[in-house]
Amino acid sequence: MIAFFRQVLVVTVKDLRAELRTKEAVNASLAFALVILLMFSFAFDPLEETTREISGGLLWIVFAFAGTLVLNRSFAREQPNDCLDALIAAPISGAALFLGKALANYVLVLAVELVALPVFGIFYGVHWTAQFPQLMLVLLLGAWALTVVGTIFSALTVNIRLREVMLPMLTYPILVPALMGAMQLTAGLVNGKPISGDTVSWLKMLIGFDVIFTAVSLVLVETVLVG
């Protein structure tokens, strides 16, 4: 068990180190997030009260779009020198490899989200600090849903035609429940309403989604990697 997590960590550190040397995915993702935030300001009056009500939704659309850029790179990074072969050949389980890559993606996706969040708060006049701990919880759960589905599908789409388009096409419909939950919760939280009564069921759904899709991914990853 300890050996398993050590291997997970080795893969995570490897991915993060490789990414931070070039910062390709993170920079692209961050820039993209800012551009979308800008575009939304034309579509909706940013400081209007009604915009604040839908701001949770806007924020998660930004996260989903920007996150896909990070996730697309995850297995694509293994492509150029056939590095995936070496990882598959190494005596670590597919589950460890998957979790390692997922964790690295998680860190990167969260980093992008944490930078985008205050920018969003400033641009749209949203008091995102009002319910900070609960907002962080939703952010962590939502980002994991995005990451776990994105990572396994990144492995599915890595060597196919139109990879960049296929990943979001496959990921977003699957993510509908998770994104919807995160949007509902975030919209309440940034308007100062803590999670309570009716919104607790969204939190449960988000947790359930994370657990189910993590489990299914861990079961199926070996099939995806080796056939």
């Binding site: 509908v176 199926l220 099939t223």
Partner: peptide, 25 residues
């Protein structure tokens, strides 16, 4: 066939979650 089968399993698991969550929404 392999990748499509994996995706189909994901999709099928997602269907009830989608239906329930949209109902709540």
């Amino acid at each position: 066939a392999t990748f499509a089968a994996v995706f189909s399993i994901f999709a099928f698991i997602d269907v009830p979650i989608v239906i329930f969550s949209i109902k709540w929404w």
